[in-house]
Amino acid sequence: MTAVPPRRRMVPAYLATGGRSRPSRTAFDRLTLLHSASPDPPQGLEAEHRRLWELLRPGALTLVEAAAHLRLPVSATNFLAADLVDAGGLQARSPIPRAQQIDRTLVERLLDGLRSLR
């Protein structure tokens, strides 16, 4: 991800939306894992879809990584990924939720219970 491009961009990222205001499905998380679901590129899609599919063919990447490789913002990549998932060319897996801290009171109560067993 380049924060400020060295030269003024000629091709803006919003072209990936194809004029839509929202992706075709619920927005993916940045860490949603994308991997290809078909051996052949899905037909009837644009060059940028094809490029995303080609990028993911060798293995899985998260949405944010794919965006960085395509040099597009995550929001724009989201549109492409959603289209490809719809067309059956990709599979998306939600990120594993972050491990939560264990509730200390529960552990204490468990300890108390174990002790009371003696």
Binding site: A3, Y14, N78
Partner: peptide, 20 residues
């Protein structure tokens, strides 16, 4: 453009388009 890289709100893309 900077905002687009920090936020994933698709409305920023629309703002960009209107601006263009």
């Amino acid at each position: 453009q900077q905002l687009q890289h920090d936020n994933d709100d698709p409305r920023l893309l629309e703002v960009d388009f209107r601006n263009e």
